[in-house]
Amino acid sequence: MDKIFTIAKKEYKDAVRNYVFVTFLAFLIVLTGISMYVGALNFHVKVSLFEKTYQALIAAGQPVSTLTRPEFFPLQLLRATIEYLEIIGAILAISLGYLSIAKEKGNNTLPLIFTRPITRKKYYLGKLVGNLALIVSVCALLFITIIGIITFVGGIHLSSLEIAKILLSAFATFIYLSIFFLFAALCTTLMRFPSNALILTFVVWLFFVLIVPQIGDTMDTDNQVPGGFFNAIHIDQPQSKIILQQFTLYETLRNGIEETSITKHYERLTFALLGIKDIYNGKSLGYIFLDKVWEVLWLLGFFFTFGTMSLYAFSRSKVLLQKVE
């Protein structure tokens, strides 16, 4: 156990002393601040548009009962932050996973390390513990900053339920980032050339973080024409549902493709927790958990699968000890 902690400590210290990592983290924090500020401004714009429309309707003697005043929910300010974590956070996690294996593989020092009395399994577990602790620290720092900005800059008092929701979102972020860390470590372990592993990991990142989550919208038939496809051919929503019943395979495939994206599961869970998706606003944790249990299971499933696979690969892989030119 001592050996695992010694390696974990070294991994953690290595990363914290690396000023590129520290600068990247600072950059993420700055992005968080900017995105929350933009979120607040966006809300102001909505309110101002509402006021203008309201005044215009009053002046024209029209009824205003159809207008809904925009309501402010502080946790909704986190929308862009979550999206930055989905994209940029994943890059940070991939870099950590890649570097944790590649630094020794590239230097061909692994065969030397394993002449010491330490098993491959323990060595990898040490790396894993160190890097996961690092990801925990990153998430803690980011979400504490978020709570700090809302409380001290925004002057908003957060309820204990809201703080609990932010903390659960931080935990979901930890699992999400760890999945990318584990996947990058797995690829770098299994592939002979670390640079090829990095390219493969980025291709996977590109596909599951950037392409697949958009597929639901881009492949939606109704989105193909401005104003809506069905609207253009004078078909209302109930009628469109009847017609689309003939295309269940396509709709299932479209949703199925989205389901394969870990980013989509993370987004659905955090958007529900933070009330970014309106229907979950003000709902209890129990309600959200029951409704989003599938997303939780997907996230944990990916986490444990890649965790086990990377541990197994590091313990057994023959490629790992091969010399890299």
């Binding site: 714009v45 999206e83 930055y84 989905e86 950037l210 958009q214 881009t218 939606d220």
Partner: peptide, 23 residues
């Protein structure tokens, strides 16, 4: 004022909000 994901989505890019005030 669009969020990062909205900026990557050709569909949401079509629904660009009206630039007001700060934006």
């Amino acid at each position: 004022g669009l969020t990062p994901t909205a900026l990557l989505n050709p569909v949401t890019l079509l629904q660009l909000p009206v630039a007001e005030g700060f934006f």
